[in-house]
């Protein structure tokens, strides 16, 4: 099997030049450590920033922490001056990192910077009791950094900080573990955040301003919007308003189904389909529970069998269709 290119070459399907290139490559047998190094760098940045953060926190009010702080400040200055020095000029389109280390240096600088501002607030109350400002300023700086240096990781941090500023915590884990959907206030904030993110996704693409950021915006935006719409539906379950939440969800699903189909994003297609399915199933269960004997249970089983099977066929067909086009 390994020599398949031999037969391909002898059949005349492979040009001599390509054949030679492959042979040379096979003979050299180079072993690439790209994955290992990237992982190591990433782990290193995480460990270092985590360690420094805890060091400062634990040693506050002792002499040692001045030293740690100075070290963090040095890290921030060092990382950012490195980034400013080596960064390729800003562009609206995607800018490639000048080298592999660049992304990680920037990450190191940004996280250290967050630690530093958090410390300033904690120790000196720089922002006073104005917590809005205390989260707003880091957020703006994070967004600026993300756009200027074109860094998806920093962008995600900026989005999370935006949520923080709006008073909610938005990451996949938090969404799953903080079941505090019972307060109306939180549901509205989530919904607003989700829509804001989706608008940002739209703007990124429409005005071609870092169009590749659309994925991150849309990823967070869709999750947050769908979850808050579902939460709203269940919150108002027994009132007439429940209908509007479901209608809103259906509208959102339709818009982004079309969008995902156009841009051939299987990830977003799957998201839209699964969230819609959850909504549809909750409606079906609601109807089925009206039946007050064991027949209702049978109906529920039949619903899931039929709808699940239908969904599988839909996914398979979509996959075939998008692939063949």
């Amino acid at each position: 099997m390994d020599q398949w290119y031999e037969s391909l070459h002898s059949e005349g399907l492979l040009s001599d030049a390509s054949y030679e290139k492959i042979k040379l490559h096979e003979k050299a047998g180079l072993f690439s450590v790209h994955w290992e190094i990237k992982t190591l760098l990433y782990i290193g940045v995480l460990l270092l920033t985590a360690g420094l953060g805890i060091l400062v926190y634990k040693n506050i009010d002792t002499i040692g922490h001045q030293f740690v702080l100075a070290f963090i400040a040095l890290l921030v200055i060092g990382s950012f001056s490195y980034c400013f020095k080596y960064a390729l000029p800003y562009d609206r389109a995607k800018v490639k990192a000048p080298n592999t280390a660049f992304d990680y240096v920037l990450l190191l600088g940004t996280i250290s910077f967050l630690t530093f501002t958090a410390y300033l607030q904690y120790q000196y109350q720089v922002f006073g009791s104005n917590y809005g400002l205390a989260t707003f300023i880091p957020m703006v700086l994070l967004f600026l950094t993300a756009y200027y240096f074109d860094h998806l990781g920093v962008l995600s941090m900026a989005i999370a900080n935006l949520a923080l500023w709006m008073g909610v915590s938005v990451t996949p884990k938090e969404l799953l573990h903080n079941y505090d959907f019972d307060s109306e206030h939180i549901i509205y904030t989530y919904l607003l955040l989700g829509i804001l993110l989706l608008v940002l996704a739209f703007v990124s693409q429409k005005f071609d301003l870092k169009a590749h950021f659309k994925f991150s915006y849309q990823h967070y935006g869709l999750h947050v919007s769908f979850i808050s719409l579902l939460a709203g539906y269940f919150h108002f379950y027994n009132s007439i308003f429940a209908m509007f939440w479901i209608l809103g969800l259906a509208g959102l699903a339709l818009i982004f189904y079309a969008d995902a189909y156009r841009s051939r994003s299987f990830y977003f297609l799957l998201l839209v389909i699964l969230y819609s399915y959850i909504a549809l199933s909750s409606l079906a269960i609601r109807m089925v529970t009206q039946v007050e004997n064991v027949g209702g249970l049978y109906l529920a089983f039949l619903y899931f069998l039929g709808s699940g099977g239908g969904l599988i066929l839909l996914l398979i067909n979509l996959n075939r269709k998008l692939k063949s086009e």
Partner: peptide, 13 residues
Amino acid sequence: AETMLTIAGIFAI
């Protein structure tokens, strides 16, 4: 732990 984390991070980088 935090000293270990810091040192390990520096080493990894």
